[in-house]
Every structure is written in structure tokens, then in C-alpha cells.
Amino acid sequence: MFKIVKREEMSGGTVILNEIEAPLIAKKAKPGQFVILKANETGERIPLTMADTDPEKGTITVIFMVVGKSTALFKTLKVGDGYQDVIGPLGKATHLEKLGTVVCVGGGTGIAVLHPITRGFKLIGNRIISIIGARSKDILILEDRMRAVSDEFYPCTDDGSYGHHGFVTEVLKEVLKKQTVNLVIAIGPVPMMKFVSKITKEFEVPTIVSLNPIMVDGTGMCGGCRVSIGGKNKFACVDGPEFDGHLVDYDELMLRLQAYCEDEKRCHEGFCRLQEAK
């Protein structure tokens, strides 16, 4: 069992942080890599990109939004409980390099994945401009941590309750107009990554996105996570999860993410009813 040593609720309980004992993974993991978690015997294998690691303590941190049965089940786990299986680190690590100015754009729980990557770019001497967004102020996560590793910091909310009133893409466009940017990293909902890539393409700024398609094994064996990158099939689990944002077929990815939506809904509703009955 992989024990949970710390648990936090964020965004009014819709987003959960788990710090999990996994010494072998903590020792090896680098920013950008992911793990697969399975709560119990009948559980599903869920890939999550790590939000942090502590090699000395032997722990890894994941932050996830409760969207279906499996994440709802993860939410029920308390400190002292554990995951039956944690597998990793999987995928390729972010290629960290001193480039000059790096813009880090994050949305929703994507900010959790973006944070260690931003910190990595900062630590090797890049100037960091962070643009993070959420629907509203009370569900914006990791603001302080992102601010701490940024030279310029722009929060955004869809409802205008905090920071820029509107989308991260609007701020990004302003930043790109004013200064030379060497790299943009965008991690968040697929539509956000799609529109960030569209803008950066206009400005001809290299762009990295991190994808989270449906996955089973995470080792390149099943091909369920295949994505079209520049017209070629790539497996997000071993060739990614990070790809050149200008080459990703986002529309195909969005359709593929919907593959099990009806099954998932049915399964989640059943679980919620069971929880309520308890």
C-alpha cells in the first residue's frame, strides 16, 4: 500500500491534494512526469502528472479534480489510508533549459502540473512570466506557490472576481506583443492549450503542452493514449506527455477524451448514490 501522509481540499472540496509515500518514485521523478494510481482491487488505473516530489521524505504529491467515479473514490481516502498501487515515474521529463524568458500558462488543475516545471525553469536561471486562470477566485489553486517562482505574475478569472477579468489567452497575447519570449508552456484544459497554441503560432514562439489522454498501462503497451502530432501517431505515455503545442490535433484529442463519457457518468452516479446512502 502507498500511504497518504498529507491531504488538503482545495477549490471548495472539488480539488484534492494527496502527498503519498512512494520512495522509489520520489527518488527518480522529474518535473513533467506522471504516475498511475489505483485505489483498490476493483479500481481503475488513473494517470496523474505529479505536482511535487520530496526525495528525502520519499513522497510524491498529486492534485486532482473530482470529475468521475475514480476521482470521487480517491477523494474518500484519508490521511493514513493509501492507494493499492502507484506506478511510475512514467513519461518523459520536461526538457529544462536556460532560454531567457519563459511564459508559463496554467488553467484549472493544470496549474498543479505547471508548478514544478515553472520552478525547474526558474532554478536554472530563466525569467518567468506566469499566467494562471480559473473560473473564479475561490477555485484558483496554488497562487502563492506560482507567484513565488515567477518574475511577473498574472492571475485571471472568467468571472472577474480576481486579477484579469477574462481568459489567460488574452493576457498571453498582451505579453507576447510587448516582449520577446523564448518559450511558452501551457498546461490545462484541452481548449485552453489549443487557443494558447494558436496565439503563440501567430507570434512564432515555441510552445510545449502536456497532454492527459485516456490511458491504461502507461508503458506504451496499449496505444489507448495515441495522439496525432504533426499528422503522426504518438503515444502520450512514452513519447509524451509533453508535445510541441503547434503540432497537436486538439480536436481529435477532445473527441477521444469523450470515448467513455456515458459509461463514466453512469458509474459516477451509482457511486454518488451509494455514498449518499452511507
Binding site: G43, E44, K69, V216, Y260, C267
Partner: peptide, 13 residues
């Protein structure tokens, strides 16, 4: 491996 033929008794579809 995931025994998905038992879905939704198991979580993998």
C-alpha cells in the same frame, strides 16, 4: 487484467 466485463462493478469501462 482490469476485468472490465464486470463494469460497473469494477471501475474500468
Amino acid at each position: 487484467l482490469m476485468k472490465a466485463y464486470l463494469f460497473p462493478e469494477v471501475d474500468t469501462p
